[in-house]
C-alpha cells in the first residue's frame, strides 16, 4: 500500500506531524482518536471548538489537532480555558491534560472552576505518574507503586479524582480506561453537549515509565489488565470508586446532574448601577 493513503481523521489532525511522539503502547493516541470521533459525532461547529492543554505528554494533543488549540504553561490550562469561555461564550472549550498538570500544580484552579460551574469540559488522562519528565510520582500515584522518585514504593495517599470533581461541584463526572473506546467516545460526546463543568478521567497505560518500573509489562499487557479488571458501576457514589495499586478499576458515569452555570447566574451588569440596584 502506498504512503499517500489518507486516514478519515486526517482532516482533524495535522497529518504532516505524524507519527506523533507518544511511545509504542501508550494510550494517548487512542484517547485522542476517541475525542476526535466524539467531536465529529456531536455535530458541533468545529470552528467554534477550542482545545487547551497544559504540559506533559498529554499536553501534546493540541499540537496535533487541526482545530483551534492552545498549549499553556504548567497547570494553567483551566484558567486559560475559563478566560476563553467567559470572553466568548459561543465557544465549546475542552481542556485535555494529564493528571500531574491538572491536579498537582493546577489543583486549585480545578476545584474553583468546578465550584463556579463554568461551562468547560475537562478530560484528564491519568497514567499515575509524570511520564514525560522521567516517571516521578505525582498526586495520583497509588500507594506502594514504584516510580523514579519512590523506588521503595510510594507512601503518599493519592487523590480520587472522580470524588474530588464531584465534591467540587462538577455536573458530569465519568471515568473510563483506554480500552473502553466506544463508551469513552460516547461519554465525551455527552460531555461536549452538556452545559456546565464536566469531568472525564481516562486511565491510560504508560509502558515506558509507570508500567516498566512496576513490572506491568508493555502497553498491550496494561490494556489487557484494564479489560479484565475494570468493573462498570454507573451512578455509584464516587467515594467508592477509589483506585488502588493493581486493584480493580471502577469505571462508569458517576454524576450527571443539571445546575445553572457561572454565566447563567451572572447578573447583567449593564443594567445595574450603585445607586439604582435592581
Amino acid at each position: 500500500m502506498s504512503m499517500n493513503e489518507i486516514h478519515p481523521m486526517d482532516k482533524l489532525i495535522r497529518a504532516d506531524r505524524m507519527p506523533h511522539i507518544w511511545c509504542s503502547g501508550c494510550g494517548l493516541g487512542t484517547n485522542f482518536i476517541c475525542y476526535l470521533t466524539a467531536m465529529e459525532k456531536s455535530g458541533l461547529d468545529l470552528n467554534k471548538c477550542v482545545i487547551v492543554s497544559g504540559i506533559g505528554c498529554t499536553g501534546r494533543i493540541p499540537g496535533y489537532t487541526n482545530i483551534d488549540s492552545f498549549h499553556t504553561t504548567h497547570g494553567r490550562a483551566i484558567p486559560f480555558a475559563l478566560g476563553l469561555k467567559l470572553a466568548n461564550p459561543e465557544l465549546t472549550v475542552t481542556v485535555f491534560s494529564g493528571d500531574g498538570d491538572l491536579f498537582a500544580i493546577g489543583g486549585n484552579h480545578f476545584i474553583h472552576a468546578a465550584r463556579r460551574n463554568v461551562d468547560i469540559n475537562i478530560i484528564c488522562v491519568n497514567n499515575f505518574n509524570y511520564g514525560m519528565t522521567g516517571g516521578q510520582f505525582g498526586p495520583t500515584t497509588p500507594l506502594d507503586a514504584k516510580t523514579t522518585t519512590s523506588p521503595y514504593g510510594n507512601y503518599e495517599h493519592p487523590f480520587n479524582l472522580v470524588d474530588l470533581a464531584a465534591a467540587s461541584g462538577a455536573v458530569y463526572v465519568a471515568r473510563w480506561t483506554s480500552i473502553h473506546v466506544r463508551r469513552l467516545s460516547k461519554s465525551i460526546e455527552e460531555a461536549l453537549l452538556k452545559k456546565g463543568f464536566t469531568f472525564i478521567e481516562i486511565i491510560s497505560p504508560c509502558p515506558t515509565n509507570y508500567g516498566r518500573r512496576n513490572k506491568l509489562g508493555d502497553g498491550l499487557d496494561e490494556m489487557k489488565y484494564y479489560r479484565e479488571h475494570s468493573i462498570i458501576k454507573h451512578g455509584i457514589n464516587p467515594k467508592e470508586a477509589d483506585l488502588s495499586f493493581n486493584g480493580e478499576i471502577v469505571v462508569g458515569k458517576f454524576v450527571d446532574i443539571d445546575k445553572p452555570t457561572f454565566l447563567d447566574n451572572q447578573p447583567d451588569m449593564s443594567q445595574m448601577s450603585v445607586n439604582n440596584k435592581k
Partner: peptide, 13 residues
C-alpha cells in the same frame, strides 16, 4: 471499526 478507534497511530482505517 474498533481497530480504527483503538489504533493510537491513526494507521488503520
Amino acid at each position: 471499526k474498533l481497530c480504527e478507534l483503538i489504533c493510537p497511530e491513526f494507521a488503520i482505517y
